[in-house]
């Protein structure tokens, strides 16, 4: 039988209460929401928190809404709600692409966006999705809130900018005209982690890519931000040749390991192909030309 090591359990009834507990308990405390990554890690003793703060009752953290030129997503929003959201599908269709292939429908009833990002597993899809979409996250702590861009969010494998005594409360996506986005994933079987996945978002104005975000899952110790490919595309007209060059950068800049999901050469090749596909589909969506 796999059972976590002993811990103390506390159910939060407010964000302020959760923060107070986290600040009092320090590094021994972990937040639990869906728990579908944390509990398996606790069973294997890869994580051994002394205290779990359960935030599942914090309904005020479960929402997807438009506000101040952004889409704001509460940290407790579950995968199933991200999948069903028409607001997200219309403005950031890469979320629906990803949510259709994240775990399985039963797991998606429990897992949350805040949990996925804070778990910071390099193989997890939403970190790449949020990186490509140029998301920012809101982190609450003792000194109020701070806003951190995805480029500064991942500080290492399973490590994020969220410190002891802090709680990620919201994800913000910038709403700008001319946006298109897509997430492309290859997995061995339904519900599995990716062999590799590529997320891309483009903003096109007058035939020119004005802004672009590209990120890869499962091919490094953290989510890979393809900043060299982004620089190449920025300010240029979208074309197959350009996307092929971006794909070559993806193959070069990823750092996959060999495992049961495949050898390194294959994964590098896959990253190139998926990056091209994601860029092609994102651009077609931006130009309303998706087949």
């Amino acid at each position: 039988m796999q059972t976590p090591a002993s811990f103390e359990y506390e159910r939060a009834t407010s964000v302020e209460g959760a923060l107070a507990s986290l600040q009092r308990l320090g590094s021994g405390a972990r937040v639990i929401a869906g728990g579908h990554s944390l509990l398996p890690m606790m069973k294997l003793r890869l994580a051994k928190p002394d205290h779990l703060i359960d935030i599942n009752d914090l309904d005020e953290l479960a929402y997807i809404r438009e506000q101040d030129g952004e889409i704001a997503i509460g940290a407790l929003t579950r995968h199933v709600d991200l999948l069903k959201s028409e607001l997200l599908a219309e403005n950031f269709p890469l979320f629906r692409d990803a949510e259709n292939v994240i775990a399985d429908p039963v797991v998606r009833n429990r897992g949350t966006i805040g949990g996925s990002l804070c778990q910071a597993d390099a193989a997890e899809d939403l970190s790449a999705v949020c990186s490509a979409a140029k998301a920012k996250v809101v982190i609450h702590g003792a000194d109020g809130e701070r806003v951190v861009g995805m480029e500064d969010f991942h500080v290492g494998p399973y490590m994020t900018a969220v410190g002891d005594g802090e709680l990620l409360t919201e994800v913000r996506l910038p709403l700008r005209p001319g946006a298109g986005s897509a997430h492309e994933k290859v997995e061995r079987r339904a519900g599995d982690w990716a062999i590799a996945a590529a997320s891309a978002a483009v903003w096109v104005d007058g035939g020119t890519i004005t802004e672009v975000g590209i990120a890869l899952s499962a091919v490094g110790l953290t989510t890979i931000h393809l900043s060299r490919a982004e620089e190449l595309l920025r300010g240029k007209a979208p074309s197959a040749e350009l996307f092929a060059q971006a794909g070559e950068i993806a193959s070069a800049d990823c750092s996959p390991g060999a495992d049961g999901r495949g050898p390194i050469d294959y994964k590098r090749h896959l990253c190139g192909v998926l990056t091209q596909r994601a860029l092609r589909r994102a651009t077609a969506r931006a130009l309303h030309q998706e087949a």
Binding site: Q2, P105, V106
Partner: peptide, 22 residues
């Protein structure tokens, strides 16, 4: 490990994996 689905029960009407729920 929340992979096989043998432990699925309904929680408030929605299926969840009871091996990965406290």
């Amino acid at each position: 490990t929340s992979n096989c689905g043998a432990c699925v029960v309904l929680m408030d009407g929605k299926p969840v994996k009871s091996c990965t729920t406290l």
